[in-house]
Design a binder for these strands. Sequence first.
DNA 1: CGCCTAGAGTTGATGCGTCAACTGCGTGAG
DNA 2: CTCACGCAGTTGACGCATCAACTCTAGGCG
Lengths: 157, 157
Amino acid sequence: MTETRDLDPEEWELWGAWTRAQRLLAQELDRALQREFGISKAEFSVLMTLWRAAGPELRVGELSESLGWEKSRVSHQLTRMEKRGFVARTESGAHGRRTGIKLTAEGRSAVQSAIIGHAGNIRRHFFDTLTPRQADAIRAWSEQTIERIESHGDVSA
Amino acid sequence: MTETRDLDPEEWELWGAWTRAQRLLAQELDRALQREFGISKAEFSVLMTLWRAAGPELRVGELSESLGWEKSRVSHQLTRMEKRGFVARTESGAHGRRTGIKLTAEGRSAVQSAIIGHAGNIRRHFFDTLTPRQADAIRAWSEQTIERIESHGDVSA
DNA sequence: CGCCTAGAGTTGATGCGTCAACTGCGTGAG
DNA sequence: CTCACGCAGTTGACGCATCAACTCTAGGCG
């Protein structure tokens, strides 16, 4: 059902460089976020999503959908963030079911201070280093890849 | 010391698509490796490095260097893999100091069976989806990025 | 010799991420 | 009504990844 030969050394090298570059960049951004604002990338993503959301609160499923994360990952993340005081699970279900997720004041202030700084880091480490052609290639590749994997079998969302 | 404005929505979108695509691809490959050969990407990397290495065994520092991983990460990974029987820490130091890392027979057979399959997955999910221009752009970007981050302050290796 | 320091490697704590198993509510078939 | 099933969310176990603190050995120097 698939190619049965090894990659060329040149291909392994490109593959290695690509994955290494990604990892270095992600690491760099994550460390900067941690150092400058005391939050992790995962926390930032959640805060940002709640911040940008239309309504005052979201359900786990909506967060999961919009982040593209598995529900269980979201749930674990929320548990950690609830402990840190960034979000609250609110009672919005029929009985005492805690199904709504809201930013706390602390959460709001954390995103607000982090967002500009983080955007700047992304700009410096990513956008500023890209030629327009590279940007186009990356955009095209990303879209292809998302399309190909997401709409093809296991959705995981 | 940095830009002080937010990213454009369009930029956030590209950033989001790119990180999502990376994650989906990595996840897909990792799952395939797990499903088809019962090993993780991290295990594969270590096995592969030992397999391709010149000598019969490596030191932790050499593994760390060649994988681009922190020593402590390598050490933890080796502990898990030793438990699984893929590698052995051998006595090569002065006294009974266990400083050499070797593949076991089981480790060798695991890489051998995984390597072709994994290469095929990478081909199908990555190389086959790339136009030559995209491949060039990705190569260039990866090299720039590695160069820029690695030789600029914190080496982390 | 006895101590000090530097480097290699390990360990523990903790956060991230996935999988599988579970809970609990709602709904439709009988 | 009640049972079965499904869907939303949670939990526990475990592997991956990083940081800080530790151990051990070797080598230098009084």
